[in-house]
Computed example of a mutant assay.
Amino acid sequence: MSDIIQMEKFAKDIRKETLKMLLNRGFGHIGGAMSIVETLAVLYSNMKINPQDPKNLDRDFFVLSKGHAGPSLYSTLALKGFFPLETLMTLNDNGTTLPSHPDRNLTPGIDMTTGSLGQGISAAVGIALGLLRDGSERQVYCIVGDGELNEGQCWEAIQFAAHFKLTNFTLFVDNNKKQLDGPNDEICETFSILEKLRSFGFHSMQVKGDSVGEIQTALKGDNFGKPKAIVLDTIKGQGVKYFEDLKANHHVRFDDEMKGVLLWEIQNFEKGDKEDDNE
């Protein structure tokens, strides 16, 4: 099986487990969790990690700055073996190790506590600077949301990363065109995120955010002595048509119709799994 096919299968599994988790919970940030699934599949197929030793000193670092997408990251970590899949059903429960937003003190595999938008990227570039000055070859990866880039702190961190030539830092921008209150172009126009990142000194490119092949190629490409930025052209709710089309799909409390859609999607994924096993 080729690497691309394996990553596509990984992405389907992440999406399936995330939908199961959210259905069990009855609500959640489905829109932004779905739009980064393919990126997580590529990252966790390439990063240097050790599920049996999550704080291994030789690991690469990942910071999910858009912390509300935590459910998809939890599914990724569980599928990689950081903790049992059954733990996913405890999302947001009292005493859970899987809170709504990632917490490095609670969840194995979480490198940085996030949720306050704008702050995760600042922590990520700080980690990257420390590793670079230590002469380490470890890499630091970070995902921010396009709406999150309304925060001036993000651009301070981006300028900082370019100034210090953090060649070990890769930034992914989930450009799903929507944020909490509605479309970006109505709330706060982003203009060209790609051109802005280039003007700030990043080696930047844009890819289809649902294509593991394009994401993989961009990730593996040269950074030309600069920090790298990969702008992901995504859809909020990506991979689940009903929620792609839902206007208010940032955080959703599921009604009976929505629960039926989620169950149908999960059953389709599981049917596909059985067909793959029989090939």
Rank of each mutant, 00 (worst) to 15 (best):
I49D: 02
A218Y: 07
F254H: 09
G81T: 08
Y242M: 05
I30W: 02
N184L: 15
N150T: 08
D111M: 12
L40H: 02
M205L: 11
C188V: 10
E265H: 05
A69T: 08
H251K: 13
V37C: 01
E151L: 07
V261E: 11
G182C: 10
N150F: 11
Q6K: 14
Q267L: 10
H68W: 08
D245M: 13
S192M: 07
H203E: 15
N150G: 04
P54G: 09
L180A: 12
N56M: 04
L73Y: 00
E156R: 06
G145M: 06
I4R: 00
S35I: 00
G209N: 11
F164D: 02
F269S: 08
L117V: 05
E38A: 08
F10P: 08
I235C: 01
F254P: 02
I49Q: 01
G32A: 12
D210M: 02
D174C: 03
P99G: 04
D276N: 13
K241D: 15
F172W: 06
S204Q: 08
V212M: 03
G221C: 09
R253M: 12
T90L: 13
N105S: 11
F10H: 10
A69C: 13
V140C: 05
D53H: 08
D245T: 09
V37P: 01
S199T: 14
T170S: 07
T87N: 04
G225R: 01
T76C: 02
F254I: 13
D146E: 12
E151P: 14
L106C: 04
V42S: 01
G237R: 01
L171R: 02
K66V: 06
E214G: 06
H250Q: 10
G209F: 09
I127F: 13
N24K: 01
F200H: 12
T96Y: 01
P71T: 07
F224C: 12
A161R: 04
K165F: 12
M112S: 15
E86W: 00
S211Y: 02
G118W: 09
D3C: 00
I121N: 12
K208D: 10
A248V: 14
N184E: 11
R138L: 03
I215G: 13
E156V: 07
F164L: 14
K247G: 01
L166A: 11
E257L: 13
D93Q: 04
G70W: 00
F61Q: 04
N92C: 14
N46H: 14
E17P: 03
D134L: 14
L79K: 07
T18Y: 04
D103L: 09
K226H: 14
M34A: 09
P102Y: 08
H163K: 11
L129F: 11
K271E: 15
M7G: 06
G109I: 03
F27A: 13
G28Y: 05
G225D: 12
V231P: 05
G118A: 03
L194Q: 13
D103H: 06
I215H: 13
I127A: 10
L194C: 09
F224Q: 15
V261R: 09
L43I: 03
Q179Y: 07
G31V: 08
I5V: 10
